[in-house]
């Protein structure tokens, strides 16, 4: 009984300390998150962390406790004094708790969050979102704004870039093919569209069109945080490490100005 009490106190104490330390850090578990989808993932991550912490501390403490408290004074092969092979209470609690915890995790955060994701996406679809056609090719991200007739958004140097207005829903259409080599069936490979600060990635599959919705919630760009970038996350050949693009989340006014600028650039280049 004494062992259980000492262990219980240590476990509760360490868990309390762990949870307290975690509370001070939990806002930054993902370092930098600025979209509604990202907040969903972040809160799920933090919820799981809070509940997994006591389990981790329990097992870690058992290994240390066994080495300290149950250690034999010498290596003589003497049988242990306690030879329990069964402890109904322990087995029942262990199995029962592991079922209960897993079912809880599946209901919350998994089911609840997937449901929230569906609902968000449906709502954002109904709010006339900004549409961005994203084309992934080896090795370039290309951004097209059909509502503003911008076929390929680039900066003054002609490098692809993406700007998004803050707090406006965005619908990304993701496609993988090479617009310059459409005849080549080998040219399309799997890429993965990932903006770390937005907290979601989706694979871009040749032959399929996928959509993704989210709302950027803070003005930010690559210079305010390097996590605000498009990064290909799925290996797509030797150019994979360099398949990235800067992203800027800006105010509505700045976005309108940027669109004008893009249209001007396009007109100057003789594009449609």
């Amino acid at each position: 009984m004494g062992n259980i009490v000492v262990f219980g106190i240590l476990w509760a104490g360490l868990t309390a300390v762990g949870e307290w330390v975690f509370r001070t850090h939990r806002a930054h578990s993902f370092y930098y998150t600025i979209s509604n989808q990202g907040s969903l993932a972040l809160s799920a991550f933090n919820f799981l962390s809070s509940w997994l912490m006591p389990i981790f501390i329990f097992i870690a403490l058992v290994t240390i406790f066994a080495l300290v408290r149950f250690r034999a004074p010498n290596n003589e092969p003497k049988p242990s004094e306690v030879q329990a092979m069964r402890n109904r209470a322990f087995i029942f609690t262990w199995v029962g708790l592991s079922f209960a915890l897993n079912i809880m995790f599946w209901l919350h955060p998994t089911s609840v969050d997937l449901e929230a994701m569906f609902t968000n996406w449906r709502k954002e679809k109904a709010q006339h979102p900004l549409i961005v056609n994203v084309t992934a090719r080896q090795w370039e991200w290309m951004f097209n704004y059909p509502q503003y007739h911008v076929t390929q958004a680039v900066n003054a140097q002609g490098l692809d870039e993406m700007e998004l207005p803050v707090n406006r829903p965005v619908e990304f259409f993701l496609r993988s093919y090479d617009p310059f080599h459409t005849y080549d069936v080998y040219a399309g490979v799997i890429h993965s569209f990932w903006i770390p600060a937005f907290g979601i990635k989706e694979d871009v599959i040749p032959g399929e069109t996928r959509t993704e919705f989210l709302i950027p919630e803070h003005v930010a760009n690559y210079h305010t945080s390097p996590l605000v970038r498009v990064q290909c996350a799925e290996v797509c050949g030797p150019g994979h490490p360099y398949m990235e693009s800067p992203v800027s989340v800006v105010t509505a006014a700045q976005f309108a100005k940027w669109i004008k600028y893009e249209q001007k650039l396009q007109a100057a280049a003789g594009g449609s």
């Binding site: 062992n3 066994a66 149950f70 034999a72 290596n75 242990s80 306690v82 329990a84």
Partner: peptide, 10 residues
């Protein structure tokens, strides 16, 4: 369960 209250040789 096996470790608990054992005479564990280190």
């Amino acid at each position: 369960g096996t470790l608990w209250r054992a005479r564990l040789r280190f």
